[in-house]
Nucleic acid binder design. Sequence first.
DNA 1: CATGCAGTTCAAAACGGCTTGAACTATATG
DNA 2: CATATAGTTCAAGCCGTTTTGAACTGCATG
Lengths: 182, 182
Amino acid sequence: MKGYLWAPSAATQAKSEGASWESLAIDAVGNVIEFWGFKRNQGRVWALLYLRDAAMTAAELERELALSKGGVSMLIRDLERWGVVLRVRQPNDASWHYRAETDLMQMARRVIEEREFSFIARVRADLAEARRLAEADPATPKPKIDRIRKMEAVAEATEKALSVFLKTSRFDVGAMFDRFRS
Amino acid sequence: MKGYLWAPSAATQAKSEGASWESLAIDAVGNVIEFWGFKRNQGRVWALLYLRDAAMTAAELERELALSKGGVSMLIRDLERWGVVLRVRQPNDASWHYRAETDLMQMARRVIEEREFSFIARVRADLAEARRLAEADPATPKPKIDRIRKMEAVAEATEKALSVFLKTSRFDVGAMFDRFRS
DNA sequence: CATGCAGTTCAAAACGGCTTGAACTATATG
DNA sequence: CATATAGTTCAAGCCGTTTTGAACTGCATG
């Protein structure tokens, strides 16, 4: 919804060890997740951890994804808070390692559920309130009230799309995920 | 998906003639439309014209919505291009007047259809390409390929939500709109 | 064809979100 | 306890988007 002229970014940067298709997949995840109002880099961090299926240190994430120290720290904090990344101690290493915990989808579902639904609920409430006020005033012409009602339909369609996303992620993906669970 | 701490904005500004519930409805529309990646003020301009169901001049829009002259000009240009606002000549008035033409929904549907779908198609293609590349390399462990497959599910769910939004806007709202057509 | 108003354009400013990096805190180790 | 390294914080900077406003264009009118 912003610019969408992604850097062609073939072989983005020097230091990364991963296969080139890896960064393709990682960036793709970053893009969808950004679509849903999260930060692109939250998606990228999760995607790397998930794809590697290994516990990595902040320093590694920093290097592989070309992020700053502070940035990694904050991104991880968010992902941990949402429960999609777990912090673990590795046998004989002083530093923390991070692992992808659950499917990103679950997180997106939870967050969208509270954040977006309340947003759209608020919009609907405003529209309903406007209609109530309009109806209370006897001077308001009838068609005008109908027009507000029609506006509410825009909000309703938005709500429906959101709820389908949530349902889809619960069933389709949930099932898929379980089936493939490693 | 940005800030969502809308200005409380009771009785926003001095000049507006409209009932206070009017601006409530107008801002609500601005909010949903912004959610779908349009400009908040595009939604507000359309909403005012639609609600008033009257042809208004740029100067009126400027005053009622507290926008700048240049801003109104550009907003209207967009809305005209999308076919949701029509420019008409009023009997004996030198200046143009603008009317809300179709339902905003139709416009959103069209634009989302081309803009968002191609966006998500691109994400899916990237993921598919990554998987193809991964599969081509015999060294890639099987579970890693499965993980890419699971990532594709995120994109699929997004696509499904989008398509439901489009369908909903076509049927539910379309029907509703016709029924109420003034 | 001069005047004035409607409408357009676009560079600059404002704005908002994201990232950076330096200072700081916490923790492990000798 | 001193030191080193990992991790956190947050003000400042960066960057993309939106809005502004002044200059400009076009058009109608006397």
